[in-house]
């Protein structure tokens, strides 16, 4: 990118020199061509499976016909296991995980940054640890704990504990970037000298300046929870990805598999768009 920028700058600077300019215009064209080519290849790589999924979800019972039956089946699909409760549980899990994660990580990170700076390296290590442990290994560790709490007949919502740990590294990185982008120490000292207590400093001074980072953390958390399978399946909880997997093994209902997958994907897209829209609005509010 830097090379592209410097090339463009050079181009602007040598507009008068015709010979070298035409040479550089040629280079620039080739570069643009390369960009579009790569963009198209990667675009197709992502789009083709998505379009295929949409097509399959709209396919009628006979080849060459179209039908919305698979989409209608999402609501009426009775399983086993039933589809709607799985969707509901997964969405609830996304919300609970996001809330618990923010309530846990945001104050901790601000506190460590402002008051116990020496602990920040240790905190970083703890938060990044789940990234270095394969999810299936985590499951082995979680299994005895979940076996025990299952006795109390808890719902799949209890998965949020595991999910909070799973999203920690991504959330930590997003929030750390937000904290690094401001002079948190000076802001907190200014607020303290004006009479603010520590909770006021955190909630009314530092957190509001981290909105973008918090939104970024949510942008990472929500899709991760919506698509999580490796932990939920071995622990025998029925979430949307687990449900989709079990439908996929029952070929009679293949249509609803595609429509439910597409729906969950669209939901995730809509959520991401909404979050980034809110983020943009917040940013624009200050400019």
């Amino acid at each position: 990118m830097a090379a592209v920028t410097s090339l463009t700058t050079e181009l602007a600077g040598t507009a008068a020199a015709k010979g070298p300019q035409s040479l550089r215009v040629g280079q620039r064209r080739r570069l643009n061509l390369f960009r579009y080519l790569m963009f198209t290849i990667f675009g197709l790589f992502f789009l083709v499976p998505l379009l295929a999924m949409v097509k399959f979800s709209l396919q009628g019972s006979r080849p060459g016909t179209w039908s919305l039956a698979a989409w209608k089946d999402i609501a009426s699909y009775q399983g086993p296991p039933p589809l709607l409760p799985a969707i509901e549980i997964t969405l609830e899990l996304a919300v609970i995980t996001s809330v618990v994660m923010l309530a846990l990580v945001v104050p901790t990170m601000i506190w460590v940054r402002l008051r116990v700076r020496w602990f920040s390296r240790i905190l970083e290590l703890i938060c990044l640890l789940p990234l270095s442990i394969p999810a299936i290994v985590l499951v082995v560790g979680f299994a005895p704990i979940y076996n025990r709490i299952e006795r109390y007949n808890v719902s799949a919502l209890m998965l949020f504990w595991a999910y909070v740990i799973l999203v920690l590294p991504y959330v930590y990185r997003a929030l750390a970037a937000g904290l690094n982008s401001m002079d948190a120490t000076t802001l907190s000292e200014a607020a303290r000298s004006l009479g603010a207590r520590w909770p006021t400093v955190m909630l009314r001074i530092i957190a509001p300046n981290m909105w973008q980072a918090i939104l970024n953390a949510l942008l990472l958390t929500v899709p991760l929870v919506l698509g999580e399978f490796t932990i939920a399946y071995p622990l025998t909880y029925v979430t949307l990805p687990v449900e989709l997997f079990s439908i996929s093994r029952n070929s009679v209902n293949a249509g609803v598999l595609f429509s439910a997958s597409t729906a969950s994907l669209f939901f995730a897209f809509a959520l991401l768009l909404l979050l980034s829209y809110v983020g943009r609005r917040l940013r624009r509010g200050r400019t």
Binding site: D183, T186, L187, E189, A190, A191, R192, S193, L194, G195, A196, R197, I205, N209
Partner: peptide, 16 residues
């Protein structure tokens, strides 16, 4: 610090 009743201006820009 928050009970000392001192106004302070910092070297770094410190407006919220």
């Amino acid at each position: 610090a928050n009970k000392r009743d001192m106004g302070m201006v910092f070297q770094a820009y410190s407006l919220f």
